[in-house]
Design a protein around this nucleic acid. Structure first.
Lengths: 255, 255
DNA sequence: CGATCTGTTGATATCCTTCAATTTTGGTGG
DNA sequence: CCACCAAAATTGAAGGATATCAACAGATCG
């Protein structure tokens, strides 16, 4: 069942390694969860609101988003999923999805063999702790989005989201220059930030004129991270990129 | 260490029982996590952004909120905590809190003995599953808030939040009449919904004039739930109040 | 190589905020 | 129990940030 799918496990392992140093055995155990790869074209639902939740998966390549459609035709993008992100590890407990997940570009998933998850976690406490931490980070990302939508203006929202996407991508594939591929349309940015694509357009242009960013050919570079952070009233603490607490380390040592 | 603290465990057990039928032994095990009670007056931080996370706790009585303050003096309330809610079970892994938690009224917490959590979960798979589900619900609540702040207008936001608070309280203390104590000021509603208290005031008055709600003496009654849901473009599916999926039941039976 | 989606620009509309003042409520001490 | 004070609720007027509408240019893709 193990697919030739190095990027997925690399990205996943890279993400988890932010939290806890994984041994060779740990990384092998991660690969043991591989239950086969699936490919999806761009702009297609992976799961749809109302469905029975599908098996958990790791996003191996590409990009996706969780979103919800409203009766009035609007939609809200809740989160972006990038390579290494784990999706719905415990979702099988639920009867129906309360939101949808869609691809943004052609995307590959690695299904997770959830029968063996518990055993793997029991035998590899560092993996368990890292997943736990990853879940904490995911929740922190949701909270930060709430803060953004509730109390930042349009410029702050855009600045915040661009920083987040760059930091998250840099965490799984170190590239020192704050430049990443950003395959999002202005419409998608708008749906994530609770604005119209027209207004997103005007904010992006202002940022370009002020030399805060460059964004062309789907490639985004943050040219002045400090100013962007100031505009958003923002820092990256919420991503908890700095590793585990002393208490957490002691806890891990006991296991 | 066990405090005379029946309400806490009742509310906690009532909440978890929505998800999985708990045995007597399960409920005793929950009580075994009790690590003492703490009391806080109204409008006081329980934890403050930047702090080392405190031990996990269950809110026993009262009401609290997670919030974040922004450099420009604004604040955003992220979630409300009501009796039975579990707070930061795995937070000890983090170095610092990325947000604060404050009381809204005089509040009692029951600290959780996190040394014994793992053992309890291993021995009581239904508790483990119920906590897992509770975490899924918490995440769903965050997602719904994102949808609200991103794509609903002021009337929709207020309608949504009032419904959510009533449903959550009804789930832990069945009262058939859609009436609950709501100790929030208009300022606090505003900080939760990304609006000004002045605008909250106008929306509430419109709702009262239209006989959608009554709200006086800190007591809220939903008089026309259907209309409120229509205004919010909203249903309660996201709270997953209906129990566990068949797959989830099979999984539990194996444990 | 046309069709459709995306990005861009301008004019106008609107929802919500801001500012300012007043009333009501709730809590506290005398 | 009442007087007093601060906080909360209420009301009105004016301003601003973003939405909506409309049209066109540019890019992407089968």
């Amino acid at each position: 069942m193990v697919s030739q799918n190095a990027p997925a496990w690399n990205a996943f392992a890279a993400k988890l390694s932010q939290f806890a140093r994984l041994s060779r055995a740990d990384i092998l155990a991660l690969k043991g969860l591989d239950h086969g790869e699936e490919r999806f074209p761009a702009h297609v639902d992976i799961v749809t609101e109302g469905d029975l939740p599908r098996a958990a998966f790791v996003l191996a390549k590409g990009m996706a988003c969780r979103y919800r459609s409203l009766p009035n035709g609007r939609r809200q993008i809740i989160t972006f999923l990038i390579p290494g992100d784990l999706c719905d590890l415990h979702g099988f407990l639920l009867k129906r999805m309360d939101h949808s997940v869609a691809t943004i570009v052609p995307t590959r998933l690695t299904a997770i063999n959830y029968q063996s998850v518990n055993e793997t976690l029991a035998r590899h406490p560092r993996i368990a702790a890292a997943l736990c931490w990853s879940a904490l980070q995911d929740e922190a990302i949701l909270r930060e989005r709430i803060v953004t939508l509730g109390r930042r203006d349009a410029r702050g929202r855009v600045a915040y989201l661009l920083c987040e996407l760059v930091w998250r991508q840099m965490a799984i594939a170190a590239s020192g220059d704050h430049a990443v591929r950003l395959p999002l349309t202005q419409r998608e940015l708008a749906d994530a930030l609770g604005l119209t694509s027209i207004h997103i357009n005007r904010v992006l242009q202002e940022f370009r004129r002020s030399n805060l960013i460059t964004l062309e050919q789907r490639r985004l570079t943050l040219r002045d991270v400090d100013s962007l952070q100031a505009i958003a009233g923002f820092n990256q603490d919420y991503l908890h990129l700095g590793g585990v607490s002393e208490r957490g380390k002691r806890y891990l040592a006991q296991q």
